[in-house]
Design a protein around this nucleic acid. Structure first.
Lengths: 228, 228
DNA sequence: TAGATTGTTAATCGATTAACAATC
DNA sequence: TAGATTGTTAATCGATTAACAATC
């Protein structure tokens, strides 16, 4: 059964992934799956899968496994994906516009209701049905339209100011794409996407692989010369 | 001094963040910082900061602290940011176009050389100086132009095929934005940005906060009625 | 030199994996 | 019922934090 203990973020971060694989299984018509079969598919240990799921409840059946559809529905509910979310984008530059147009989120119940900017050349424009409005009016819009999530796509220097305004206006969550760290009140959830950090991490791993390959090559070379 | 042991990914993921704060400090003209001062700023413990840095070398000086500029340069070098990287985008839809136009990466030495698509309506177009080319020709382009990184912005179903082709063509790293897991050869570095997963995680935390607030409210209510 | 702060070892904490009794 | 597989406790592993000797 469901526990009251705090669930670690490592577990939460795995849930969307479980859910993606369950969607694939459903598509293939698979009706049940054991933790061992799931382990082979998703790459987590069977033990970890059972531990993770048991944080939320006993969704399986001994001797049988887990119902694919049942588990899909449970995880969707845990993540809150049985609800609809209303979002605004702040900063209608390239990234903001791309997210506005990215219909993928809309299909999953995350609706972009409007975008906001301070640039008079952008205000009034339409992005595939999503209007760019004046940032001046964001607080009343968020209140009146009952916006749940604010997406920050402004530059680094303005990110905190936008986060403060969104929090004040009453959003429940902030999705930050600005390349800086921001602070939000404890009643606002914060999720960060640091694209630059991600790219830097990629650069590290690329160089690490190169370095290891060079070292291995050096070893072969010196081995060979020792044999000669 | 630098160790040979494998450095955990948790450490690597913190390096770009250290670097961001060091840039801010440099801007402010701060020349040295102790692990304790850095801890107050960045929010990691002083102990963790010293541990992290000592994975790569003894960059500090006892009794003094760390040189801001020196540490910035060391971390930049560790991440491989003292080099230039040549990138291609595969999939010139909304996201691909946004990344192509996002000049932020270019400033940091990550140059988008071209975008690729199969859509005849897109091929030949120009995205702020970046041309959209025919995906047919991607292998020879990557080879001839010595591309280091492939950015996957195609849909889920085509992501693995694209990853295979990029790996075959000789990229050293793949940055995957497609909402699916892909496999790459061990000599290719892989970094993933799962936007949907991130959004789902945000949804979880929003609902978690709401649930806790509701529970706290309920507690106050029942407390009050017990007192009455 | 005395004070400050690192580099590094030891202790703690938390997350993952293994084992197995419960049970379908 | 026997076999399979979960739910859950125990053991292990790895990452973080604390402590302190080394040293600038």
């Amino acid at each position: 059964m469901a526990k009251n203990a705090k669930i670690s973020n490592a577990v939460i971060k795995r849930l969307p992934r479980y859910r993606r694989y369950l969607i694939e299984l459903k598509k293939k018509g698979v009706e049940k799956i054991s933790s061992k079969e799931f382990s082979n598919l998703i790459g987590y240990t069977a033990s970890q899968i059972r531990q993770d799921l048991n944080n939320f409840g006993g969704f399986g059946q001994q001797g049988y496994g887990y119902s694919v559809d049942g588990l899909y529905k449970e995880i969707s509910a845990i993540l809150g994906l049985d609800k609809e979310y209303r979002m605004v984008i702040v900063g209608a530059g390239n990234l903001g516009q791309a997210i506005a147009k990215y219909t993928h989120f809309h299909k999953q119940g995350f609706k972009v209701c409007a975008a906001f900017d301070i640039n008079p050349n952008l205000i009034g424009k339409d992005l595939d049905g999503i209007e760019i409005l004046d940032y001046e009016n964001i607080v009343e819009y968020v209140e009146e339209e009952e916006i749940d999530i604010g997406i920050i796509c402004v530059n680094r220097d303005n990110a905190q100011e936008v986060a403060d305004k969104l929090s004040f206006a009453g959003v429940k969550g902030i999705w930050n794409f600005a390349p800086t760290d921001i602070e939000v009140p404890s009643h606002v959830a914060l999720e960060v996407v640091h694209l630059s950090d991600s790219l830097h991490s990629l650069a590290y791993h690329m160089n690490d692989i190169q370095k290891k390959e060079a070292a291995a090559e050096e070893l072969r070379r010196s081995d060979k010369s020792a044999r000669d």
